[in-house]
Every structure is written in C-alpha cells, then in structure tokens.
Nucleic acid binder design. Structure first.
Lengths: 202, 202
DNA sequence: GGCTCTCCTTACCGACCGGTAAGGAGATAC
DNA sequence: GTATCTCCTTACCGGTCGGTAAGGAGAGCC
C-alpha cells in the first residue's frame, strides 16, 4: 500500500522540500502538515508516499549524506599533494556550506537530536565520510605518524570550524548587520586555508 | 501577580532544571509540563514564576552566557603571553564544554532557532564574549596587523572546533563505542593546543 | 477576627500534533 | 463491463502543546 517507489521524480521533490523544513525547524518542529502545505498537497498525500514521518526524515538524511560523500570524492581525485588536497577540500566545503546552509543545519540538528530517536537505530550516515577524511589527514607528512585518534581530533576540529560558521549565518547577520557579516564572511576562507596549512605542514 | 523575584534560590533551581531540558530537547521540544514534572511541581506553578515560556528560556540563556563571560574573565587575568593565554583559554573552554555539554548544546540550538523567534528581539548574549576573544587574538604578534574581520574569522573557527566536538559526544560514543570515543576525547586537547599554537605564532 | 499577599492547585481552553480509516477518481488490464 | 491498482481525498482519533481562569492554603500584618 505505501506506494513502493512512487514516481521517483515527485518523490525527490517531496524530499527536497522536506529537507528545507527539517533544516529550518528540526525533526520535531517541522510538521507534516506544514511540509504538505508548502508542497500544495494534503498531509495525508505526504503520508501516502512515506508511511511515517521518520521514514521521510530518513530519506532526507540519506540525501544530505550522499552529497557530502560526493564532495569528498571530488577532493580525493585530482592532482596535488595531500596537504593541498586537504586545504582545497576544506575551502570547498566551506563554500558549499555557505551556499547551502540547510545541509549544515540539518546535520547539526541531527547531531543534537539523534540520541532521542536512538531506539529507531538509524545508522550514522557520516561514518564513512569521517574515516575518509582521517585517511586524507594521515597522508600528509606531518600527520603520517599520528594515531587515528589524533588525526580524528584534527579532522573534527577543522570540520567544526567550517560547520559552526555556516549555521551561524542568520545570527551573525543580525548581530553585525549585512555589511559587517559580509566582511567577516569574505575573510573566512583565507583564514581557514591558513589554519589548515599551518597545522598540516607543521 | 507574576511573583516579582520569587525566592531567588528556588528560582535559580527552576532555571537550572529548565536549562537541562532546553539543552536536550530545544525550545520547542522541551515542554513546560515535562520541566515541571522533573521539578515535581505543576506546570502552572512554573508559569506562576515566569509568566511565559519565553521568559523562562530567556533566563536560561542569560545564565549560560554569564558563565561564558566568567570563563574569559579567568583567561584574561593571569600571567603569560597573549599566545599562551589564547591557547590556555581554548583548552579550558574545551574541558569546560566536555564537562558541561548542555551549555554548548543550548547555545548551538539557539544559533539554529533564534531566527524563528527573532521578533521577540532577544538581544544576542554572546556579542561581548566574541569581541573580547577577537581582542585577545589581536594581541598576539602574528595577528596584530590583521583586520577585525580576519581575527573574527579565526576566533569563530577555533570556537567552532571546540563546540562542534562537545555537541557530538552522544553520537560519537554510539559511533565508536565508549572506548573508541574515549581515545579520541583524550587526543583532542593536545591537538587543539597544537592547532592554536601553530596559527597564533605563524 | 479580617485583609492582603505570595504560592500553588484543579479545571479548562483552542490549536496543533502524527497517524488511521474508508473510500473516490482515474488509469490499466482483461 | 468489471476488477485492480496507485494516488489522493475527507473525516476523524487520542494526545500534547502553551496559556488562562478562578480559587484555596498559609503567612504576615493590623
């Protein structure tokens, strides 16, 4: 009864709109009725496609994590020393996160909330993403002899540096005004590159 | 009628328990009834003290921000070069954030949600905290000639590095197991210190 | 005793939540 | 024509939300 595959194209559209809603209001804050209203369908039409809210949310998470995987694919292929790849990846990630803040917001919300929904046993989608980044760090000369835990700590710190800024956009804009925020946003990538360079070539 | 100051000691206790709830479930997810249940009073007793949910939440935010101000007070006084103070502050902040993850969680939730409650015009409590950190960075030799925007970018990246890890504790524990997480947590502060040192003495 | 004040109670309210039940519209198959 | 499928509708359900109304208990004051 739950429509197996639906039309796939419409299904992708539903997930896309739901992604906006979940990123902006969180799993509990985004209601099926509100998402359906946005889509100009009824709440029950939405439930027809996905059966349960958790299922819809799961597909949203899946989509976001596959985009992150694609990002690291792009960083790994291509020329350059590991240090350059790492720096390029982080700057790219930063720009990507600033252009699509909803993905960052959704993942941070998931980080905050997934303990409450733990019994549903969603697998953690970004484990592969993290371990690939750790491997990238350990390919640099300065971190070749580091433990996995140390390389992981560095990866997480750099990831946090990028993510925290991207989820702060609305707050910082109100705090410093549009112009004040713009100046800080412009300064960000080169400082990020300097930070990455200074630690990976230490 | 709304009890002016209440008993101050009980009021502080109510705010403390509410802080737990808001940090764990967010403003919308934490219900007055659930907080009251935790306190062993009725929901209406809680409303008696604070009038509205927003008011209670505002006092919670106020308390958290005053703790962050206290942290930077401690870092500014005391001996040492600016570079050492900055490094010491970040490592202290990290340990504080790991011991009291609820404060980090609450602030990140506020970062994600405050746009929706913007019309209530809560002032942003951490503006002073940020500008004091920017000043600390600009006291280091390497950043003396940096613009405010550049120093801010560095501050925000370091803050993100610390905060992102502390809100990830439950997820990472489930991802890597208690032992795997513990190894990564142990490696974190020295990597953080190395990162701070390498960028502030570049 | 009587008045007033704080503190907290029970009893509600309308709005919204996720989810279910049942069935109609329309295309396809035979 | 009839049966069967997907897709979507209207009509509900029980439960929870933040907030209001009204009043009792007890202490302090006179």
């Amino acid at each position: 009864m739950p429509s197996e595959e639906s039309s796939l194209a419409t299904r992708a559209h539903l997930v896309e709109v739901a992604l906006d809603a979940f990123a902006e209001r969180g799993f509990h804050g985004a209601s099926l009725a509100a998402i359906a209203r946005e889509l100009d369908i009824t709440k029950q039409a939405l439930l027809h496609h996905f059966g349960r809210k958790e299922k819809l949310y799961g597909e949203v998470l899946q989509r976001v994590s596959s985009r992150y995987e694609a990002l690291i694919d792009g960083a790994e292929e291509g020329p350059g020393a590991p240090e350059e790849k790492l720096e390029r990846f982080l700057v790219t990630l930063h720009h990507e996160a600033m252009d699509h803040t909803r993905e960052s917001r959704l993942l941070v919300r998931e980080l905050l909330d997934n303990r409450r929904r733990a019994e549903r046993a969603e697998r953690w989608y970004l484990e592969g993403f993290l371990s690939r980044l750790v491997a990238m760090v350990r390919r640099t000369a300065a971190w070749r002899d580091a433990t996995d835990a140390e390389a992981f700590a560095l990866v997480y710190q750099l990831l946090g540096a990028v993510t925290y800024f991207s989820i702060s956009v609305p707050t910082l804009t109100r705090m410093y005004g549009a112009d004040g925020f713009e100046a800080r946003r412009e300064a960000f990538p080169s400082v990020l590159a300097a930070l990455t360079r200074s630690i990976s070539s230490a």
